[in-house]
C-alpha cells in the first residue's frame, strides 16, 4: 500500500482528523491523500465526509471490502440536499477550460484521458479541490504523458511564475 503523504506547511497538531480515523496513517495526523497531486489546502483538514466514501484499492483503510466501484461513479449513492450556491467563473478557470478544449481538439489528449486522471485522484479531492483545480491537474498529467513538456520544465516555470508576485494578477503578467 502506498504510504500517504501530507504536505505539512502549518502546525497540524490539535486539528481533528478529517478521515475520522479511517485513514491509513497511524500517527493521527490530518492527512489527505495527495499521491501524485502534490499539495492540498491544509485549512480544509477539518472537513468530515457526510457520506460513505468508496476508497480505491491501496488508498485507505475502509470499513467494508472494496467491491470495485470507484468513487466518481456516484449514481444511486446517498447524498445530501442539492446545493444552491453558484459562482461566476474566474479568468483563471476560464483559461483552464480553454486549454482543455484547445489541447483535446488538437489531439494532444482525449476527454476520456482527462476523465481518467480525474477518476484516479484520491476520493477526497472531489471535496478538497475545486472543479478547475482538478481539471488543471488532469490537463497537466495528460500533457506530460503526451510529451508536450517535461516535469522539469513545468517545475522551473512554476517557480518563475511564483517569483513574479504574490497574487494571480502579478504572477500571470509574465
Amino acid at each position: 500500500m502506498p504510504r500517504r503523504e501530507a504536505v505539512r506547511e502549518n502546525d497540524l497538531t490539535n486539528r481533528p482528523c478529517m478521515m475520522n480515523g479511517a485513514c491509513a496513517k497511524d500517527d493521527g495526523c490530518t492527512c489527505i491523500a495527495t499521491l501524485f497531486l502534490g499539495r492540498i489546502d491544509i485549512d480544509k483538514c477539518a472537513w468530515t465526509p457526510s457520506h460513505d466514501l468508496n476508497y480505491s484499492v491501496g488508498m485507505s483503510k475502509t470499513s467494508e471490502p472494496f467491491d470495485g466501484r470507484r468513487w466518481h461513479d456516484m449514481g444511486g449513492t446517498t447524498a445530501g440536499p442539492i446545493p444552491t450556491d453558484q459562482h461566476d467563473f474566474a479568468l483563471w478557470e476560464k483559461r483552464v477550460d480553454a486549454l482543455m478544449v484547445i489541447c483535446s481538439t488538437k489531439g494532444y489528449f482525449t476527454v476520456d484521458g482527462l476523465r481518467r486522471v480525474l477518476e484516479d485522484m484520491a476520493p477526497e479531492t472531489f471535496e478538497t479541490m475545486t472543479y478547475y483545480e482538478r481539471w488543471i491537474a488532469s490537463v497537466n498529467q495528460n500533457l506530460i504523458e503526451a510529451g508536450v513538456y517535461s516535469t522539469a520544465e513545468l517545475a522551473a516555470r512554476m517557480s518563475e511564475v511564483a517569483a513574479r508576485g504574490p497574487t494571480y494578477g502579478e504572477a500571470a503578467d509574465g
Binding site: V57, G68, R69, R70, D73, G75, G76, D112, R115, R116, E119
Partner: peptide, 9 residues
C-alpha cells in the same frame, strides 16, 4: 479497474 463509462448502478 480503470476508466469505464458504464455506471456501476
Amino acid at each position: 479497474p480503470g476508466h469505464v463509462r458504464t455506471p456501476a448502478y
